[in-house]
Write a protein that binds this DNA or RNA. Structure first.
Lengths: 143, 143
DNA sequence: TTCTTTTTGAGACGATTTATCAATTTCAAT
DNA sequence: ATTGAAATTGATAAATCGTCTCAAAAAGAA
């Protein structure tokens, strides 16, 4: 039925582990979430309003936070809002952000990642996730 | 009088440039700010309550934002709050954060910084600031 | 000192997210 | 299929954080 079988399994495993239930809303929200690279709760609320006009905003917040706990999403505070990043879009969770036009470019860099591991090891840490954001002016806005 | 003459000069220069005034509050807040590596408005509010019980929270927010414009501070959204980083503590704005005990270790890594520049250049960006946070378990919490 | 401009403090306000709670749904055990 | 305990939902109240408003105060040039 859904194309996101793998992630759906991850969710179900997490739900089972904590005696939580698999609901129509959670399935709907996961499907919509996995189509994006990142999204805010508000955006998803409007997007899903067509499919299910009665889906509450609180449910979306709760579910996106659930995805974070399940390791499917990663919250990122940007400006006044929280962006929920799709972790399955691996290699694309680092961001270049234009401080003028707010454009976001996603990138990945294995070398940086390797150095991060080194820093962590040197300090006795085991990395679970990371967040790297570079703020500046894009070529268009620099002029 | 103050030990932070250099930064005080930077502030005064910025004030002069925009026809702003040098006030007792701004001096007080800058002095307190420069003693920290990073602080939230709320924390500073409580810290300064002893020295000046009538200092308003809004003034602290306004002043910390002013420091950002003057290049003395750098705002960073961390959790639900905004951290104001002391830019003069250069080389210490990257963080290792323990997801279990919330311990924060600051670090710097020139190589990572160099690679960030490369990524930015490759994408036509000019970096103004960046944020790098590594989340994981510290040695104590891993056991 | 005087006068204009900026700043301040207090609280109202706005935006975002979480908490509350009765009604509904899930799902395991009949 | 039915039941019943436990979790979830939707609506909205409440909390949180930061900014705005505005009258009173302070800064600083003349």
């Amino acid at each position: 039925m859904s194309k996101h079988t793998k992630e759906m399994e991850v969710l179900k495993e997490h739900l089972g582990k904590y005696q939580l239930k698999f609901t129509r809303q959670r399935e709907l929200i996961l499907d919509a979430f996995l189509k994006q690279e990142h999204i805010t709760a508000e955006e998803m609320y409007h997007q899903l309003a067509r499919k299910d006009p009665h889906l509450g905003l609180a449910t979306i917040y709760r579910t996106l936070n659930l995805f974070c706990e399940a390791g499917l999403a990663q919250a990122r505070h940007f400006g006044t809002q929280t962006q929920y990043d799709n972790v399955s879009h691996k290699g694309h969770h680092d961001h270049l952000i234009c401080t003028s036009c707010e454009k976001i470019v996603e990138f990945e860099n294995c070398e940086i990642e390797k150095l991060q591991e080194e820093v962590a090891t040197r300090n006795g840490f085991t990395i679970q996730t990371h967040r790297l954001e570079l703020y500046g002016l894009c070529s268009r806005c620099r002029h």
